[in-house]
């Protein structure tokens, strides 16, 4: 059976203080650290979503990358956008895990925070994006030692093969102490760059 071909419609990067869409730089921040930088990104793109400030760093990063990409796609409200989310990274939710860990380390100041604990799962960022864009869709979060285009390619293609999704928002969203990197792209059956492992790696 011949496998159908899919296409990359658009892609977005957030790394090194820079936000870019389809390879074009949209914003360069000069924050001294990630929280300041990502807040400036939020302001720049005029998101107006107070829940953003409750998110942990990984969710903020994933949320803003999805925001930049999906805003361009002009998702219709009131319709079901069956866009699956397939994300991967290296550090899982360790950035927030360490925070929760610190809050329970000392018996004399043992105050675990529910608002921190809830983010000690990497897939929470998928939930945040689903809520914002009303995506009732397939979600999965994977962990690898490094960027793994092959996995992203096969897994997202399988969702399209099996008609589990119309499109797939796919990519790498990693945050570990001061290092952060988001690379998301949208795969669909429409026209665009022909979808392949090679194409993913060249855009990454």
């Amino acid at each position: 059976m011949k496998k159908p071909t899919y296409h990359i419609k658009s892609y977005c990067h957030i790394r090194e203080n820079t936000v870019s869409l389809n390879g074009v730089e949209l914003f360069v921040g000069n924050g001294p650290n990630f929280p300041v930088f990502i807040k400036s990104v939020y302001k720049k793109f005029k998101v107006d979503y107070p829940k953003f400030f409750k998110m942990d760093n990984l969710s903020k990063l994933a949320f803003m990358a999805a925001e930049v990409l999906l805003t361009k796609e002009n998702l219709g409200s009131g319709v079901d956008n069956n866009i699956a989310l397939v994300f991967a990274n290296r550090a899982s939710s360790l950035d927030t895990d360490r925070k929760h860990g610190a809050s329970i380390e000392d018996d004399n100041s043992y105050y675990p925070s529910p608002a921190v604990f809830v983010y000690t799962l990497p897939n929470i960022c998928l939930g945040e994006i689903s809520i914002k864009h009303k995506l009732f869709s397939e979600n999965s979060f994977f962990i690898f030692d490094g960027f793994n285009a092959e996995h992203l390619f096969h897994y997202s293609s399988s969702l399209l093969d099996l008609n589990k999704a119309e499109e797939v928002l796919c990519g790498w969203v990693d945050l570990d102490e001061n290092n952060y990197e988001a690379f998301l792209y949208l795969v669909s059956k429409d026209v665009g760059t022909k979808y392949s492992v090679k194409a993913i790696n060249s855009l990454y």
């Binding site: 107070p50 409750k54 105050y111 675990p112 925070s113 529910p114 608002a115």
Partner: peptide, 17 residues
Amino acid sequence: LGLDSIDALELIVMLDK
């Protein structure tokens, strides 16, 4: 203020702490 269930739990921690 539009607080939700996690905020309520967080306020419980604040009362304790």
